[in-house]
Design a protein around this nucleic acid. Structure first.
Length: 822
DNA sequence: AGCACGCCGACT
DNA sequence: GTCGGCGTGCTC
């Protein structure tokens, strides 16, 4: 029979262009197919797992392809359509396919190799001529036949170990080896059962038990526990940990029983993922008439294969509509993807869906470790999960039969990934994916993004509105504290207006809870010199350091650099450093001054770094152990509290004044979002906005809850000044360690771009933070009006940049393209 | 991304 | 004299 020479194109999880061609050994010809992982040697040392993109018979002309080392999967882990999606992302967002693979595959599915050191088989054990460290290494290799580099670092107590190892390799003592290891480990648990022979023979069992009673009483107790609690249908099968726990016995005792062939131990593969029971209490609910109408509209929009925007104010019951739509997909045996911003993926919403749909619901977000992610991947792949609730990266899970994509909180800009590449927008990518996989797409928001609302009103998407609050709960009353006036009249106390203080007192008197928002960490506490106003800055970044009170040190929020607080101002040498600005920490601290009996707690990145800390605070607040919760935006998403009657926005201005064409829209969204936390059902809540510009349009529109007006003014501005949705924005970021190089380079690139794109090029400009980790940064912005070929434009942008950067003086300048920057 | 190859400063 | 710094270019 003819033996075909097969070659494959593989994607490697590296930021390099294109795919790589490898050769398939004949014996694997039958097994090879697109979407499987293969093990490959890449370069001289590294071993990677790559994904087969293509199988063909064309031998490369300019080089001889290496053979692949093996095939990992019996079945493909991604299919053709997934790979096409990856390719679309790579092309649209101007990055390499390997970078998409990196984002798409859980790290547990990417094998990696690690350098290992072993003793040369011919080494005779001669210690002469070796120094202390070399002897130590050999000694350690006597115990463990293989050592990795970090262990050797520990043994030798030095950082640079390569010279040492290299000389030992040259002397023929050691060998360097690349050891490949599977990142994913199946979780196994030990189970104990009673030997079948005994279970089936009562008299023998009795004999054994009698013997144990007289000779080994503890072992007898273990047996009794097993007989009582073990699964009687499976030879009294019980988890070993549980048995140890209830019997108070030890592993040795169980082992002794095993040796006597009384007990049998086995290891069983188990899932790391929580099992969920469908709650019988909630199996159906009635939609209101309005909701039914909306549902009908959504369905007819789906019938036309249109993306549907569900514009529903907070509390109007969008989730119930989603649940109905998901149920329909379940009936058709299709999968649903429910995308949410990471921050909104709280236990509240997850529990609700899990209770409703049971264990066909899978959750996917960054708080899962790599083993858990692999298990979720596998359960999507084999369709065990019908519903996936997840953050943006769940877009890449291996759906087999996707019928519906829900993108809730559609306007949230955290759907856009910025670092690292691929810099994709999950909402826009989901719309592409929906088309590709013939799945319906529904976008939901109380405050849709201007772009989406434009699409929905111009006919590209369909628009369904749901503008009544569920159960007729009223919208909260929004009050504005005029900070200018309060400052003049001296009624303001520190960061609190008299209005806010009064409302807080009222709420506390009524035994209600309060949430205070301190948006953005830009207002984190800083130190400032009392005499010369100098501020401690980061030495690697162009930002001031943030003061962390609990540990009394200064920290850079961009690069993580930290240092101790200096005694005296190093600039003028005389002044002392004083606290300035106000973060959540400062607010939390001030509350007891005004409300000595109230329990206040703060929630921000610092207090919630630990996985459970976040949940604990939420739980305590729900249990009313906390009266006043001070927090950042993270409190405004995906959480509902029943006893909150007042929400305070401490500083609305720093958002409104942010120098960005989206700041108006964002401020409106933020105020609306936050207001939604005040008052539930029949009780009307209150919101107090503190601002120095109380008559600003955005505050007016928010008070009137007038999305339409807000949209009208914004769309006009966007049209006049040519901003999205009337153009596309591509941001080109240049980075270099030298300020002069970056300036010259950015200028020259902008000139080259202008020659091609004319006035569509803005900049170069320093971004808000102009230096991060010792790299100076400059941005060039490209505005591409509708009708211009995006594909061509991107091609030119790439080519011109490449040509300009070839100039010798610009060596080392890094370029980043950010398509549809937010 | 990693890693090898290659050309210039402070040290056994 | 060498070790080792990181600049540049390649990886199928």
């Amino acid at each position: 029979m003819e033996r075909k020479s097969l070659f494959i194109e593989i994607i490697l999880p590296l930021p390099i262009k294109g795919t790589f061609t490898y050769r398939v050994p004949y014996e694997l010809n039958e097994e090879i197919s697109i979407g499987k992982r293969v093990v490959t040697q890449f370069g001289r040392k590294k071993i990677y797992s790559g994904i087969v993109r293509d199988v063909h018979e064309n031998a490369p002309k300019n080089y001889t392809a290496k053979y692949i080392l093996g095939i990992i999967d019996a079945f493909p882990i991604v299919e053709e359509k997934d790979l096409q999606f990856w390719e679309w992302i790579a092309e649209y967002y101007m990055c390499n396919i390997g970078e998409v693979m990196n984002a798409a595959l859980p790290s547990g599915l990417k094998l990696s190799s690690e350098t290992q050191i072993i003793i040369h088989p011919d080494y005779d054990g001669d210690f002469s001529g070796l120094n202390e460290k070399e002897k130590n290494i050999i000694e350690a290799l006597g115990y463990q036949k293989m050592l990795d580099l970090s262990t050797i670092e520990d043994i030798t107590e030095q950082k640079k170990i390569f010279p040492l190892i290299n000389t030992m390799v040259e002397k023929g003592i050691l060998i360097i080896k690349e050891e490949l290891h599977d990142e994913y480990k199946v979780k196994k648990e030990k189970f104990i059962s009673i030997n079948r022979v005994l279970v089936e023979d009562e008299s023998k069992m009795k004999e054994v038990l009698d013997q144990l009673t007289s000779r080994a009483y503890k072992q007898m107790e273990i047996m009794m526990c097993l007989l009582r609690d073990g699964d009687k249908t499976q030879n009294y099968f019980l988890k070993k940990d549980k048995l140890l726990d209830i019997s108070g016995g030890s592993s040795q005792q169980i082992k002794a029983l095993e040796e006597k062939e009384i007990l049998v131990q086995e290891e069983i593969e188990t899932s790391r993922l929580e099992k969920f029971q469908k709650s019988k209490a909630i199996d159906s609910f009635q939609l209101t008439e309005l909701q039914q109408g909306a549902l009908k509209e959504v369905k007819s929009s789906f019938a036309e294969n249109k993306v549907c925007l569900l514009h529903g104010i907070t509390g109007s019951g969008k989730t119930e509509i989603y649940i109905h739509l998901i149920e329909e997909q379940l009936k058709k045996n299709k999968q649903t993807l429910y995308l949410l911003p990471e921050i909104a993926l709280t236990t509240q919403i997850i529990n609700r869906l899990k209770k409703y749909f049971g264990d066909v619901v899978g959750v996917f977000h960054s708080r899962f470790n790599k083993n858990e992610r692999v298990e979720i991947w596998q359960k999507v792949l084999n369709k065990e999960y019908k519903i996936i609730i997840g953050a943006r990266s769940s877009l890449f899970l291996p759906y087999k039969d996707l019928g519906l994509i829900i993108i809730d909180e559609e306007h949230d800009n955290s759907f856009k990934q910025y670092e690292p590449a691929p810099r994709y927008h999950a909402r826009d990518s989901a719309i592409y994916l929906g088309q590709k996989r013939k799945a319906n797409v529904i976008l939901g928001s109380a405050t849709p993004s201007i772009e989406t609302y434009y699409n929905a009103t111009s006919g590209k998407f369909s628009l369904v509105s749901l503008n009544k609050r569920y159960g007729d709960a009223g919208m909260p009353e929004i009050l504005v504290a005029d900070m200018e006036k309060e400052t003049k009249q001296r009624t303001k106390k520190s960061h609190f207006s008299s209005l806010l203080l009064k409302e807080m007192q009222d709420a506390l008197d009524n035994k209600k809870q309060i949430i205070l928002f301190q948006n953005r960490r830009g207002f984190a506490p800083r130190l400032e010199c009392s005499s010369c106003h100098w501020m401690p800055m980061c030495k690697h970044c162009d930002v001031s350091l943030v003061y962390h009170k609990h540990a009394d040190f200064l920290k850079c929020h961009y690069c993580g650099f930290s240092q101790k607080v200096m005694e005296k101002c190093p600039e003028c040498g005389s002044g002392t450093l004083q606290l300035r600005g106000f973060g959540t920490e400062k607010i939390e601290e001030e509350i007891p001054l005004y409300f000595p009996n109230a329990k206040a707690k703060r929630m921000d990145l610092d207090t919630t770094r630990k996985k459970t800390a976040y949940q604990q605070i939420i739980q305590d607040f729900e249990d009313r152990k906390i009266d006043i919760l001070v927090g950042t935006q993270m409190l405004s998403k995906g959480l509902d509290f029943n006893h909150v009657s007042l929400v305070g926005i401490l500083n609305a201005d720093n958002m409104i004044n942010y120098p960005d064409f989206r700041s108006f829209e964002r401020s409106f969204q933020m105020i609306s979002q936050v207001s939604g936390r005040a008052g539930r059902r029949e009780e009307k809540g209150k919101v107090v906005i503190q601002s120095y510009r109380p008559h600003h349009d955005v505050i007016r529109f928010a008070i009137d809850n007038n999305y339409q007006e807000m949209y009208n003014t914004q769309i006009l501005e966007r049209r006049n000044f040519l901003y999205p949705p009337f153009c596309r924005l591509i941001k080109i970021t240049l980075k270099h360690k030298d300020r002069d190089v970056i300036n010259a380079c950015a200028m020259e690139l902008a000139i080259a771009y202008r020659a091609k794109f004319g006035k569509r090029i803005l900049g170069p400009e320093y971004p808000m933070v102009s230096r991060i980790r010792s790299f100076y940064i400059k941005d060039i912005l490209v505005k591409l009006e509708k009708g211009i070929s995006l594909k061509d434009a991107k091609l030119h942008l790439g080519e011109i940049a490449e040509k300009t950067l070839k100039d010798g003086s610009f060596k080392g300048v890094r370029v980043i393209f950010d398509v549809d920057t937010v």
